[in-house]
Design a protein around this nucleic acid. Structure first.
Length: 682
DNA sequence: GCTCGACCTG
DNA sequence: CAGGTCGAGC
């Protein structure tokens, strides 16, 4: 049987990542093994390559550098047995629901002894020349063994075997020292050594000291451990079931829910197919996986490639190409789920590793749908595209109703910048870290403060909210299906989950950026301060440093802080003037002649743009004074453009001078550290 | 020489 | 949003 690199198994690749990146997330093995064993995890062509330009480079290891000689310890290449091999392994596991039945270690590890021989070999090099004996071994059906005479390739193979062995012998999913030696060698010193070694670099290969596999006479122990692995698999099955149920519930509640779409169809198709080949246990797993996928699908709001797939499913080819369709859907979804999950967890588990994990795999371009800006579609009314609304009595006469050639389309950012927070955050505190990913997801689903998130995502708040300011409408409420005030105590409880104050500050900003009411003088500006500064911009465009000091009483003003605040306002002005110029030019191009036609009202496009920038949550009522200033600014720009003054390089300066005199009084509520809530509440 | 603000860039 | 540059004003 010819070996084809296309047959390499991504699930095992991911497992390899887990092992290498810290030996801490062993429970993943079970998950991926099940995914693999289910037969539904197939490689998306090119998705998991380490090197995009190299169709054969699937090895995350290849980027690691050997600490001794500076060379890549393992070159890219083909070292994975075909997936059918692993599939048979997993199937074997799954087909033995009896936890007491022992698993033959050699079934998992066909070249066990030779691996041992490899690791028993001594020498300065990690893989000595003795390893070449491996080339005499069966090569997983590869027809041409000569290519494996290369030392590096042998090393690869041995390494993968080592990983597989780790899978088979390790009972505890959360034991960090996955490949530790036996107890008698577990001196504290060694533990520390491994710990530090892990921190220094992602472990790219197991040294002879670190592999228990090099020790003969361990088969019985390994059998016990295989037993435990099986138990773990069953536990994972159970967790998967729970997870699936959890996520499928909202799907089943509504007939019109999106799970009736492609994923529902995919589930049906797959269940039918699997019924022919998998035993009940496997079916349950796969079914639950699909439920999970359905949930993921629900949480998608737009821009999913799946919609294309969905179209493919619903078309008439369904009966003739259902296999490929099913495969496509599942591949896409699985890869997304797995990649995101891996990234999330590894980021948390190994925060010190700079090249993890989004970079580590040259990640498959799993597109978490961008929350970036979109541009107005063709349906947008021309009268609102650019313009501050005309005064009503003139609108009928001066409004442009046709789009002139070359009419630029501007972003309607107000709608688009609403952040999609569909992702259920994985809270990786020390308490939950040990529970494995599924437990975490369950935890998140049940207890997490964002527990409603998946459902929210499935039915996001209407984007077409009236553009009038909505008081008391915090962005937290926007993100909750059933608005619940987030009280201080709750915020603090979140804080307790964070490892550090800085982390909380970050999370705090991410949640809503409402300044944490505190008398504590902060040494640095927070996202809350930024938000406050933006709102202050509605009142003042050119604040002095003394004014800023008067309004940021909870900040310890240093030179750095002051300049940062000044810089913020500089950036605010920059955006403001850019928008003014843009809209003024467009008005000019549209044939407006009278500057008095230009009025920035609350439902004008310009206002939307500005409001989105400075008042993202739309939870602050923009003062009328700002509208007046904006209108004046727009007219000044318009007048200058109309008069051809923009030919002068410094034509904006007079405008800046005018606008700088229009600063108004900032409400005193901004002075209090909890000003934002007060300001929002009016 | 210093500060400030606009402008450019990543 | 932050860093750097440049010119203007004092």
């Amino acid at each position: 049987m010819a070996y084809r690199p296309e047959e390499k198994c991504p699930a095992l690749l991911i497992v390899t990542y887990c092992v290498e990146m810290g030996n801490r997330s062993f429970s993943w093995y079970g998950v991926f093994a099940i995914l693999l064993g289910s037969g539904i995890f197939k490689e998306e062509k090119g998705m998991h390559r380490n090197n995009v330009s190299d169709p054969y480079d699937y090895s995350p290891i290849s980027r690691h550098v050997d600490g001794q000689n500076g060379e890549p310890c393992i070159e890219r290449g083909h070292f994975f047995p075909p997936p059918s091999y692993y599939a048979s392994v997993i199937s074997h596991l799954l087909s033995q629901p009896d936890a007491n039945s022992e698993l033959e270690p050699n079934f998992l590890l066909p070249s066990l002894q030779n691996t041992e021989r490899l690791f028993q070999s001594s020498g300065n090099k990690t893989f000595s020349k003795e390893a070449s004996t491996l080339s005499q071994l069966p090569l997983y059906g590869m027809s041409n063994s000569s290519q494996f005479h290369n030392e590096h390739l042998q090393a690869k193979r041995a390494r993968v075997e080592n990983i597989i062995r780790g899978m088979s012998i390790l009972p505890n999913s959360i034991v960090p020292d996955t490949f530790g030696e036996s107890d008698e060698h577990h001196t504290e010193k060694e533990k520390n050594y491994r710990e530090s070694k892990r921190k220094q670099k992602p472990p790219h290969q197991q040294s002879p000291h670190e592999t228990p596999l090099a020790r003969p006479g361990k088969i019985s122990i390994q059998s016990d451990e295989c037993l435990q692995l099986k138990k773990q698999l069953h536990l994972l099955q159970h967790q998967l079931k729970q997870l699936g149920k959890k996520f499928l519930q909202p799907c089943e509640l509504s007939d019109s829910s999106p799970c009736q779409g492609s994923m529902g169809k995919a589930m049906y198709l797959l269940k039918e197919k699997l019924g022919q080949s998998l035993d009940n246990s496997s079916q349950a797993i796969v079914s639950n996986q699909l439920q999970d996928l359905s949930w993921k699908n629900i949480s998608k709001t737009e821009g999913s490639k799946l919609s294309e797939k969905e179209a493919a499913v619903t078309d008439s080819h369904i009966l003739t190409s259902e296999d490929s369709t099913l495969s496509e859907i599942l591949k896409h979804e699985l890869i997304q789920v797995v990649t995101q999950a891996v990234d999330s967890v590894l980021k948390k588990v190994l925060p010190d590793s700079p090249d993890l994990p989004s970079q580590m795999c040259n990640a498959p371009p799993v597109t978490v749908s961008s929350t970036g800006r979109e541009f107005s579609g063709a349906g947008e009314k021309i009268s609102r595209k650019w313009l501050p609304k005309f005064s009503s009595h003139k609108a009928s006469t001066s409004r442009i109703t046709e789009k002139p050639p070359g009419f630029p389309t501007y972003p309607i950012s107000s709608k688009m910048e609403r952040r999609s927070q569909a992702n259920c955050p994985l809270i990786m505190t020390s308490e939950v870290q040990g529970n494995g990913i599924i437990s975490q997801m369950l935890l998140c689903s049940q207890n997490g403060p964002w527990g409603n998130t998946p459902r929210m995502a499935s039915s996001p708040e209407s984007l077409d909210v009236p553009w009038q300011p909505i008081k008391l409408k915090s962005s937290i409420m926007r993100h909750q299906r059933h608005p619940v005030s987030l009280k201080l105590s709750e915020m603090e409880s979140f804080a307790s989950l964070a490892a550090s104050k800085a982390e909380f500050s970050e999370m705090h900003g991410a949640v809503n950026e409402i300044p944490f009411p505190s008398t504590h003088i902060q040494e640095a500006l927070t996202p809350g301060h930024l938000r406050k500064a933006k709102l202050m911009f509605f009142f003042t465009r050119y604040p002095t440093s003394s004014l800023l000091k008067a309004y940021f009483l909870d900040v310890q003003f240093t030179r750095c802080v002051t300049s940062q605040l000044i810089k913020w306002f500089s950036n605010f002005r920059e955006f403001y003037y850019i928008q003014m110029e843009k809209f003024a030019r467009q008005a000019f191009l549209d044939g407006i002649t009278d500057p008095n036609d230009l009025i920035v009202s609350r439902d004008s496009e310009l206002f939307r743009t500005l409001n989105t920038h400075y008042n993202k949550g739309n939870d602050f009522e923009v003062p009328d004074g700002f509208l007046d200033v904006a209108s004046l600014t727009l007219r000044e720009f318009f007048g200058a453009i109309k008069g051809g003054k923009d030919l002068d390089p410094s034509w904006k300066k007079p405008i800046y001078k005018i606008i700088s005199k229009l600063d108004g009084k900032i409400p005193d509520t901004f002075k209090s550290s909890s000003c934002l809530q007060e300001a929002i509440q009016g």
